[in-house]
Design a protein around this nucleic acid. Sequence first.
DNA 1: TTGACAAATAAGAGTTACTCCTAAATAGTA
DNA 2: TACTATTTAGGAGTAACTCTTATTTGTCAA
Lengths: 151, 151
Amino acid sequence: MNAQESIINSVDLDKKTVWFTGLCREKGLKVTPQRIAIYRELVKTNEHPSAEMLCEKVRQVFPSISLDTVNRTLLTLNEIGAAFIVEGSGDAKRFDGGLDEHQHFKCVECKRVIDFSHEPFNNIEVPQEMEEMFVVLRKSVYLEGICDLCR
Amino acid sequence: MNAQESIINSVDLDKKTVWFTGLCREKGLKVTPQRIAIYRELVKTNEHPSAEMLCEKVRQVFPSISLDTVNRTLLTLNEIGAAFIVEGSGDAKRFDGGLDEHQHFKCVECKRVIDFSHEPFNNIEVPQEMEEMFVVLRKSVYLEGICDLCR
DNA sequence: TTGACAAATAAGAGTTACTCCTAAATAGTA
DNA sequence: TACTATTTAGGAGTAACTCTTATTTGTCAA
């Protein structure tokens, strides 16, 4: 087992999968093997994969899956709150399965996205009037600047 | 004068321009009329224009400016901290001249970006260890969810 | 001032990352 | 097991950059 890829154990992965299939049914979405495969690959990694990267992974299981399906599915995951698009994504969108609360720092020069976790940022309070008007699916603190390697 | 466009008065606009030319020189960038025109158009509006939208505006002054120049310039502004790309930008990047501190809420369904200002979010503290490793150019709180019109 | 030169621009071709379309397949339901 | 609305695969199409090249222009030094 590759340490970089296996940041989630198979028990937790199965739990996530059960939760995900439940969420799909709740939202009236069909539980297709492709959808599950894409979700599982996304949740397995913490390297903010692009649709292209995920497509390659999933093709090891579903050789005939199309990039369009991966793209469509990832947007769907974003809409139902099962994943999200990393803030400030530039050229190719980067996706995140949201394993645990964390924030992102993006280098404006090398475009690297660096995860970090800062407890106070995990607990920011959404203003009352926002909660009343909107359904807030996610909140995050996003930093940008120049990273240690670039400066 | 159109109220929608003139959210900044000409004195403040000139102040911003002086600051901007200074920043360019400091960063070793040439102060070209195109660069200034693009910056001024961006700062004049609060509607998160795309490169395309800004290009049209600037063409009223520089009929021959190319879209490529506008794109390149906007990315440069982002790198030196004179402007930024709105988080979660989808298809076409949206830019913000950062007139005053504010946050963004994005609807995952209609893709609308809604500005809001919440005082505690303007004053979040960047962790010490981040400040030491990186140059933090900007920090923001970003919310996503479903807006009042879509839910 | 005036050259010299590195940086910036315009124009257009090229590329990337989606996004749409259609026919075929399939999950959910009766 | 049959039906129907979703979903998928494959391929064509499109939008938004991004690169290349020739030309122009700030900036700096003499």
